[in-house]
Computed example of a mutant assay.
Amino acid sequence: MKLVWSPETASKAYIDTVKSCKTFSESSVAELVSAMAAGWNARLIVETWCQRGDIATSIGLAVASNHTGGRHICIVPDEESRSNYYNAVQKPGLSVQVIVGGPDEAMEGLDGIDFLVVDCKQDEYARILQVAKLGQRGAVLVCKNTGSRGALGFMWRSFVDGKSRIVRSVFLPVGKGLDIAHVGAKTGNGKGDKKKWIKHIDTQSGEEFVIRK
């Protein structure tokens, strides 16, 4: 089973995020990621946040989780960040679970991530991408604040190598730069869509051919 896009759900999340984030100047990113998370029907949405990080994206993801009926989890580095985050994200009807800790510790037990948003301003963003346990249906990975040219375009494969294949990736000049990758659904063996070697024997000549498909 793969992630399936729903334009209707994406539109609803987009509109609700516009209403919820109208006071934030950086809401263009929030609206986009909210629509994407909801449109792909993400059941487990995970993001990272640190002090002085924008809060509009979090509100947008919380809106998306309301539309998908999924979980929205935010990883913060310390208790002070947890307190400040809760105070900033409080909105009627929105629910976010906060986990405190480093990448390996925080990701423990978070299996089947459908939608992951990390901030390139954080020192440990790369480690978070590497240890994330992505869902069998595939996943969407978003890196924000990548700069004007997109810092990750050639690096996605190193982050998800051994998990799944990159279906497509794109850099968008939204906010301070968004690098986005769509990771394909995993096969039954959990190792991604790897190519297979198929043996074929020519019945007339008796020659044996090995074909990779």
Rank of each mutant, 00 (worst) to 15 (best):
residue 154 F to G: 11
residue 1 M to S: 15
residue 156 W to A: 07
residue 93 G to T: 10
residue 133 K to P: 02
residue 189 N to P: 07
residue 159 F to I: 03
residue 75 I to N: 06
residue 208 E to V: 15
residue 19 K to F: 06
residue 103 P to I: 06
residue 66 N to I: 02
residue 62 A to G: 13
residue 154 F to A: 14
residue 25 S to I: 05
residue 164 S to V: 15
residue 186 K to Q: 09
residue 31 E to Y: 07
residue 78 D to A: 08
residue 59 I to C: 00
residue 106 A to W: 00
residue 65 S to N: 08
residue 97 Q to M: 15
residue 64 A to G: 00
residue 143 C to T: 08
residue 36 M to H: 01
residue 27 S to L: 06
residue 184 G to W: 10
residue 58 S to W: 01
residue 80 E to Y: 05
residue 82 R to N: 00
residue 122 Q to E: 14
residue 147 G to H: 06
residue 53 G to S: 13
residue 130 Q to C: 07
residue 24 F to M: 03
residue 11 S to L: 03
residue 87 N to I: 05
residue 155 M to H: 14
residue 183 V to I: 15
residue 79 E to D: 10
residue 157 R to Y: 15
residue 47 E to V: 09
residue 30 A to W: 05
residue 102 G to H: 03
residue 150 G to F: 13
residue 138 G to L: 14
residue 205 S to L: 12
residue 152 L to N: 11
residue 176 K to H: 14
residue 113 I to W: 12
residue 25 S to E: 12
residue 96 V to D: 00
residue 185 A to L: 13
residue 43 R to Q: 15
residue 59 I to S: 01
residue 192 G to R: 07
residue 150 G to V: 13
residue 83 S to G: 02
residue 48 T to Y: 00
residue 12 K to S: 11
residue 141 L to V: 13
residue 50 C to S: 09
residue 121 K to F: 11
residue 175 G to T: 01
residue 110 L to K: 04
residue 46 V to A: 06
residue 123 D to E: 13
residue 173 P to Q: 14
residue 46 V to N: 08
residue 27 S to P: 07
residue 120 C to W: 00
residue 200 H to L: 08
residue 76 V to W: 05
residue 150 G to C: 14
residue 194 K to G: 07
residue 176 K to M: 12
residue 153 G to Y: 03
residue 203 T to C: 07
residue 91 K to E: 15
residue 27 S to T: 08
residue 13 A to Y: 02
residue 154 F to S: 12
residue 2 K to Y: 14
residue 58 S to K: 03
residue 143 C to D: 04
residue 60 G to C: 10
residue 166 I to Y: 10
residue 107 M to E: 04
residue 113 I to G: 01
residue 94 L to I: 15
residue 111 D to R: 10
residue 36 M to D: 03
residue 21 C to E: 09
residue 165 R to I: 13
residue 115 F to C: 08
residue 213 K to S: 10
residue 147 G to M: 04
residue 146 T to F: 03
residue 72 H to N: 08
residue 204 Q to R: 13
residue 199 K to L: 12
residue 63 V to M: 08
residue 176 K to E: 13
residue 17 T to A: 13
residue 78 D to V: 06
residue 138 G to R: 13
residue 61 L to T: 04
residue 124 E to H: 11
residue 198 I to C: 11
residue 54 D to H: 04
residue 48 T to H: 04
residue 106 A to E: 01
residue 28 S to D: 10
residue 70 G to S: 10
